[in-house]
Design a protein around this nucleic acid. Structure first.
Lengths: 345, 345
DNA sequence: TTGTAAGCGTTATCAT
DNA sequence: ATGATAACGCTTACAA
């Protein structure tokens, strides 16, 4: 329960024979400004080196009112896409001397609200969150408090907060146009969590692109309600069992594509001969799937990096009284053609 | 730079007209023990509810000498295997009222040492780490300090510390025996990071199993030095380019299998017709690869859960003067047969 | 039943 | 060039 004892400024000061303040000054690099003599500085540094002096950041945080940590809230860290974003976030923080406190919201708004509360009580310096969607008063509150906040992957239209996301709508349009060009008309769509804005953008991008080409998609042709593989399979089964079934499906996520494949196998429908498939979120394995998956890819590394840039800018702005910028950066998606789509006779 | 202002005990106390200690007592549930009148308790709770009082955990941590956070150090959070472990760790911590401070060591011992130092200065209550391997005096130091520490996925034979890992050696033996049974004798091996203990166990398990069956593997038949797909491809290319090349390869990781596939494709070697392949770490996509991958799977969820159980036991033991248990739990691996292996004529 | 005050380990202000 | 000392916001004896 108790923290392990360890050397602090006090002990160091005693052993060195100087005051705590002096030690504090040299250890925090304020030796120049405090005009500490080179001699004492050396001595303190030397002693500090011998004993592994680890200054207590929690005391420091209390005094300085900053914890040098960013709160990262992710809906599912085991999802490779979010894991990649987390990696960027951690690295970007680390190189700037910040740590990351990680919370998984489990795609649940209530859990997310709890996460936010926790982060607040832990006094993180700001939040980077990929919001579940739906209710978001907890995020609005954070913003109102003036706490730095940037959104990741999923933007909240109702909330005027900086963030970075992919251009999901045109991504979906890319998929649709590719399919259309190859002669498909009967195109279905399997979505993930309807509440999430990235998903919603993809769906509306899909619908709009179809409409622009004069095709009205029956509501029952967009199915899906979450990311679990079994649920996706059931939803896809519904879509593929109707009398005049689609000749192509766009799966709004990589795991979703796998679910669709499961359904197709169960119904003995050959992909791509009898069913074309476009998926989202490219992965290293996508080209090795049978058939190699045509996907709409997002620039994951860049998303993470840009989000963190934005975060630290926001943080800096919140310190000074620079006008708190409010950028939303939308990154382009790209279609990667492989072999899960065929031209319709 | 500064934390956003927010209600604390002091403000609440003023508005309620009681002392800070009273507020502290009711908010920390010590109302019974402190025998606070029901009336004041209600009043405080009521006011606290109105204003979103968020108690300052950093001040609390300073006073109580505990931060209720566990430091998690992972060599690469973007690796799905580690991401899955991280998820378990986060969840297990959250349900127990703990938070997770996440560091990525980038498979670099020096970075890892830095991570440890950071965690120490942040006063996390203990560490869960999947160590890079190689140097580990920083971990020994943690242990010597009496700070709870449990190892994940990779054990350190030289260090007597609790931890959980898969039975990598028998996992490798499983792969070897499967191959042997189907008539293969010329079996190569592509490893990941040689320094990591899980990798080392797999390699020695592989070698031992071969030896038990009277086969001496030439050193040049175990290649590989890290997990990057391009490097794996180059290494596999070496292995597959020798005059009398292996008829089977065991790839000690899922990304490694992909690298081998790349190499085989480049050399126009058909899998499994001309080369059998067994990989490690099953993934949802493994059955959809062409050909579906025969793999040795580890119980990832269980690993994470068990490790966290162990961690919290260790934590509890470190508080009381219960003898600090020192369990190492080794979980079984299982062979999943799919179609990347053929019987040799 | 409630309040006062000391102390957790820092940093910053003000003396010296 | 350095040392005392007062916060930072909490918990917890000890007083009242």
């Amino acid at each position: 329960m108790a923290l392990p004892p360890s050397e602090g400024l006090k002990q160091l000061a005693e052993r060195t024979g100087v005051s705590i303040s002096t030690v504090s000054r040299v250890l925090s690099g304020k030796a120049e400004k405090g005009r500490i003599s080179v001699k004492t500085r050396e001595r303190v540094l030397h002693e500090a080196g011998l004993q592994g002096v680890v200054i207590n950041e929690v005391a420091r945080g209390l005094r300085l009112r900053t914890t040098q940590t960013v709160g990262l809230i992710i809906p599912d860290i085991s999802n490779p896409f979010f894991a990649a974003l987390a990696r960027q976030a951690e690295r970007a923080s680390r190189v700037r001397g910040y740590s990351v406190l990680l919370c998984d919201s489990e795609e649940d708004t209530e859990v997310e609200a709890g996460n936010v509360r926790l982060m607040r009580s832990r006094r993180v310096d700001g939040l980077v969150v990929a919001p579940v969607g739906g209710r978001h008063d907890h995020l609005a509150a954070v913003q109102k408090l003036g706490m730095p906040l940037v959104l990741l992957d999923r933007l909240l239209p109702e909330l005027d907060v900086p963030g970075v996301a992919s251009d999901n709508a045109v991504g979906a349009a890319l998929a649709v146009e590719h399919l259309l060009k190859l002669g498909h008309r009967k195109i279905g769509c399997v979505q993930g969590l309807p509440a999430s804005s990235s998903n919603a953008s993809r769906v509306s991008g899909f619908l709009d692109a179809m409409a622009r080409n004069g095709i009205l998609v029956p509501p029952s042709w967009v199915v899906g309600k979450d990311y679990t593989i079994e649920s996706v399979k059931q939803e896809a089964l519904k879509l593929l069992s109707i009398p005049s079934r689609p000749t192509a499906i766009v799966a709004l996520g990589n795991m979703i594509a796998l679910g669709v494949l499961h359904a197709a196998r169960e119904l003995e429908i050959q992909v791509p001969e009898q069913l074309s498939l476009v998926s989202f979120d490219d992965q290293p394995w996508a080209e090795w799937i049978s058939p190699p998956l045509t996907t709409v890819a997002q620039p994951v590394e860049e998303m993470g990096a840009r989000a963190m840039d934005l975060f630290f800018e926001t943080l800096a702005a919140s310190g000074s009284n620079i006008t708190p910028l409010n950028s939303r950066v939308i990154l382009p998606m790209t279609l990667i053609e492989r072999q899960s789509v065929t031209r319709l006779a």
